[in-house]
């Protein structure tokens, strides 16, 4: 009886150990055993393990150091027959011929309560090896061969193949044309809408005055400001010359604002219409230069004389046409 009880205990223990065992198995393989140089080698590691096990990411770089790792896919985790299945896919390549052995690769895993320990999940390789809670299982070594491309030296050398002609894909072409037409249409619409909006909002009409009227108005305003009477002599001379230079720019189409006195005078000399005011302009600009750049303080009469000279320059060179202020749309 006693013997029977011992036998039963041993049998039950064995049975339970089989049912609740924390089992894990791994397999490493490649898609074929023969490759040509530069071929893509599809290498995978498949681990099958029970739910009590947590598999850590494999450390494979050292094992594959003789091979070029082209890509590492995210692990695929699935469940089959009540067990977990993790598959790690790698695409490798090799540029030397010969026999290749991918050595056994360590797969680390945790069991039972240790799987909940977050610290264990982020251990380095050396820590993984030295940690007693981390268990390890090794894959099988994988053999394959990388062959050279066979060249038949007896055959003649052939030229490189020419570019392959791809037949026109009319549907694709049509799609491009339609897209281009659509873009042109949208741009045309936006442009018209913008133009319409701009012309619609600025319908206010501006009266374009002849240059001499503008200049005389500006001179009148300057006189009213009474700058030199307030001691702002330099400002007065700067403004008065600016008005005359602007007048020259508009009346004779000269870039007088960007020209020096000498340049302005030499340009005016070339114009028959300005002959009569050449001497006055010379005095006017030279006197202004003295005040502006040489700290020259003119007598009061000269300030007034400057205004008279300015008016004379404008009046004597104004366009002799009957000017009817016309209303034009400002675009």
């Amino acid at each position: 009886m006693k013997k029977l009880i011992v036998l039963l205990f041993i049998s039950f223990s064995f049975l339970f150990s089989q049912v609740f065992a924390q089992t894990i198995s791994v397999e490493a393989k490649v898609d074929t055993s023969q490759y040509l140089i530069g071929d893509l080698i599809h290498f995978s590691i498949t681990a099958e393990y029970s739910h009590e096990i947590k598999l850590l990411k494999p450390v494979i770089k050292e094992g594959l150091k003789n091979l070029e790792i082209l890509s590492i896919d995210e692990p695929i985790v699935s469940e089959e027959n009540g067990k977990k299945l993790s598959r790690f896919n790698f695409i490798l390549s090799k540029y030397d011929s010969g026999s290749v052995i991918i050595p056994q690769i360590n797969l680390f895993y945790l069991v039972g309560r240790d799987t909940a320990d977050a610290k264990l999940l982020n251990l380095s390789k050396s820590e993984l090896i030295n940690n007693s809670k981390v268990r390890v299982i090794q894959t099988n070594p994988v053999n394959f061969r990388v062959n050279l491309v066979q060249v038949d030296f007896k055959k003649d050398i052939k030229d490189v193949k020419g570019p392959i002609k791809i037949p026109y894909n009319w549907m694709e072409l049509l799609l491009y044309i339609l897209t281009a037409l659509l873009i042109i249409g949208i741009l045309f619409y936006i442009y018209h809408k913008y133009k319409k909006k701009k012309s619609g909002t600025t319908e206010e009409k501006k009266i374009i005055l002849p240059p001499h009227i503008t200049a005389l108005n500006e001179l009148r305003k300057l006189r009213e400001e009474g700058l030199w009477q307030q001691g702002l002599i330099k400002e007065y001379h700067s403004k008065i010359t600016e008005i005359i230079r602007t007048y020259f720019s508009e009346r004779f189409n000269l870039p007088a604002l960007e020209m020096t006195t000498a340049d302005t005078l030499s340009m005016l000399m070339k114009n028959k219409e300005t002959e009569i005011i050449l001497e006055t302009t010379k005095n006017f600009l030279t006197n202004a230069d003295l005040v502006k750049f040489a700290k020259f303080i003119p007598v009061k009469s000269l300030n007034e004389e400057m205004m008279q000279q300015a008016e004379k320059i404008v009046n004597r060179t104004k366009e002799i046409v009957t000017v009817i202020p016309q209303e034009v749309e400002h675009v």
Binding site: T261, A262, D263, D289, F293, A294
Partner: peptide, 10 residues
């Protein structure tokens, strides 16, 4: 001349 004018700079 005892003073500089724009012509001198140009």
């Amino acid at each position: 001349r005892g003073y500089v004018i724009p012509e001198d700079v140009r």
